[in-house]
Design a protein around this nucleic acid. Sequence first.
DNA 1: CAAATAAGTTAAGTTTGCTTAACTTTGTAG
DNA 2: CTACAAAGTTAAGCAAACTTAACTTATTTG
Lengths: 223, 223
Amino acid sequence: MPTISKENYLKAVFLYNNRGGEQMAGTTLIANELNISKAAISDMTRRLAEEGLLTYEKYKGMHLTPKGQSLALQVIRKHRLWESFLHKVLKMSWSEVHVEAERLEHHTSDYLIDKIDDYLGNPQYDPHGSPIPDAKGEMPPDRPLLPLASAEVDGAYQIAHVHDRDPQMMNYLSRIGLVLNSKIKVLEKFDFDGCIHIELNGQPTLLSEKIVEQIKVIPIEYV
Amino acid sequence: MPTISKENYLKAVFLYNNRGGEQMAGTTLIANELNISKAAISDMTRRLAEEGLLTYEKYKGMHLTPKGQSLALQVIRKHRLWESFLHKVLKMSWSEVHVEAERLEHHTSDYLIDKIDDYLGNPQYDPHGSPIPDAKGEMPPDRPLLPLASAEVDGAYQIAHVHDRDPQMMNYLSRIGLVLNSKIKVLEKFDFDGCIHIELNGQPTLLSEKIVEQIKVIPIEYV
DNA sequence: CAAATAAGTTAAGTTTGCTTAACTTTGTAG
DNA sequence: CTACAAAGTTAAGCAAACTTAACTTATTTG
């Protein structure tokens, strides 16, 4: 059973290596992600490799073994289920749930998280729209997410994922009524500054480039 | 903000010094309670005294300052509310809730525990019947608890507190239907071995001395 | 009341997970 | 293609929270 530091490390490596890009996680990247010195990460890499949780080549990238991946998925499962729970049951806001889940994820038995999973009705996505691994570490099926920036003018979409880049931003989005699964229509796209004008709950709303970048959508089928 | 070790230490000292007996908490006692060497406790005592969380005289007992007491009460509050939550909401059994709460109590913000408190309707007692401090650290009013061993034959009582001495015992009690607030009638007391024969849910039931010792009751007023 | 025992302390050493500083390797820009 | 910056590693050191072993103080009891 890994420590908190190891869980955080495994989680960070997993999330980076599975983000969709090509490049493998590196020392500096993980160091920045976890706010820890490069030296500490380098050290940890060696120790985790000895434990058989990852493989790496010196001065090259690292990548998780099945064992390491499975542990990472358990931590991610706990994080996302806690976020769901805090949001849905305790009515905590988008901007509040992340910090709490970040601590709780390391102090929750498999047994307890399964109870929470059942209590919530085995949700497939957390309040940000991220997929929740099941007890075996299986992710729900992939959805064809589209960056909001690539949405077409006059298209109708549903908010499918909002990246938690900043509590203030998350608060702002809640305030203007933009939540997960909100239905929107793209009114106009401004290429010169990246802003997008949408219709949200009947209101015309302008989203800044920074906001647009954090949002992924799914096209709504015409029925 | 104290570490997990310090929180556990403060909690143990508080619980011992407020258990009702005369004697102050000592090094060996706390060491046994926390399963830690006497040396480590002695060390911690000195450090916590430096931090102003307790006062002590070398080779004599120790006792918490208001600051230390307030911290201890917050930890106890978190522990008991988590137990209540796991039991009432997630339907976890008496024997399961303690271990989980023992971890969660150290990783729950004041904000989150207040949310849980509200969600539960600000309960005054946890599933074992122990009082839950409110957000300010105030305990609910004392109830006149009676050790089951002192109950009178033919008397009607309500189970008001069950001490969690062993998971197996807690499971057994659940199985025979003895839960918090169960109503019982004392049928017969066996002084030679400490067993007590009670009526529980219409069934005659025999409780061993060890069980009797863990139970406190309140007399039921005749209406 | 003194001698044995229990309780408490001190000292030295360990592990984990960090730090900073100095160094090595790799990748890139002129 | 070389030199320099970025990335990565190694080394030395630190703090927290333990351990065991040796020691000191307090208490109990014959």
